[in-house]
């Protein structure tokens, strides 16, 4: 099975739109994973039926047993995250601020503090027309986590069977969730857009992807909105030896398609043509790779 992840340094570049298009263009049996766990949007493009829902447990959280607490205030004094609150003559843990370090359990003389599991999101496994989809949702206020990404990938690998292609919608940024996404992939498609910040973030994400020995491809979305910056991106890619496999024009049909919850490739429009061309280039390169 070939494994490709669609990623981007900057948010809002059209990563999910392109992932959706790839899913409709690819031949053969697919599985897909939405690893953009902070803002999982891939499910909005495909009719899906959730088959299983599991709780996701991230970092543990401290808890104070009020019956054992002797009100010494050690936990509040030593907590560096301001997660212990004193109100109504009692100490409480603010679960949003608690980073799960367990220092309070070290300094409590009364054994009143303990670390507890907490649910910080959900992992779903769904069925779509184009194949099984693993996706997840992190609760608002929970830290981003490579672990949740790994859990989503684990679900999808369990069900991959003999399918031909795994398509992954990755998270923006270059942190832990991205690294967890790229691990184990054959190739990454980096989606960028012609703006100064787009070019800047492309450079950062390429640096990270290089560490994983994956094939790197670039797609420039809305390339004709600012052609001078698009030309700088092309130059950067040429210097780095990275193939630009897609140049997708700005096209109002893209937003129309998203509103209709349909991949844009279902329409006859310039963006869809460009995406088809991109997929052909990408498919032949993946085949060779």
């Amino acid at each position: 099975m070939k494994k490709i992840a669609v990623i981007s340094g900057k948010g809002g570049t059209g990563k999910t739109m392109i992932t959706g298009a790839l899913a409709t263009l690819a031949k053969g049996d697919l599985v897909f994973a939405d690893c953009d766990v902070d803002a999982a949007n891939l499910e909005l493009l495909f009719e899906h039926e959730i088959e299983t829902t599991e709780a996701y447990r991230g970092m543990q959280v401290a808890d104070i047993d009020q019956d054992l607490c002797i009100q010494c205030g050690n936990c509040e004094e030593y907590c560096r995250f301001g997660a212990i609150e004193y109100r109504d003559e009692r100490f409480y843990v603010d679960p949003v601020k608690c980073e799960g370090c367990a220092v309070c359990t070290l300094v409590c003389p009364a054994d009143a503090t303990a670390m507890k599991d907490r649910e910080s999101g959900k992992i779903f496994y769904s069925r779509t027309d184009r194949g099984p989809l693993a996706h997840a949702r992190l609760d608002p206020g929970s830290g981003t986590s490579g672990l949740l990404v790994s859990e989503v990938k684990k679900r999808v690998n369990e069900r991959a069977g003999n399918r031909d292609l795994l398509i992954t919608d990755g998270p923006p940024g270059i942190g832990c969730p991205l690294i967890a996404t790229v691990t184990g992939m054959d190739a990454v498609l980096i989606v960028t857009e012609p703006s100064t910040s787009g070019l800047h973030d492309l450079g950062r994400v390429v640096k990270v992807a290089r560490n994983f020995g994956v094939d790197i491809f670039v797609a420039i979305n809305k390339y004709n909105l600012e052609e001078s910056v698009a030309a700088r991106i092309e130059k950067y890619c040429e210097d780095e030896g990275i193939p630009v496999v897609g140049r997708i024009p700005f096209d109002p049909m893209v937003i129309e398609a998203i509103r209709n919850r349909t991949p844009v490739t279902a329409y006859d429009c310039p963006a869809a043509d460009a995406l088809r061309e991109m997929w052909e280039t990408l498919a032949s390169r993946l085949e060779r790779g």
Partner: peptide, 10 residues
Amino acid sequence: CHSCGGCRII
């Protein structure tokens, strides 16, 4: 490191 200071205490 999250700077919790636990290693120093333990």
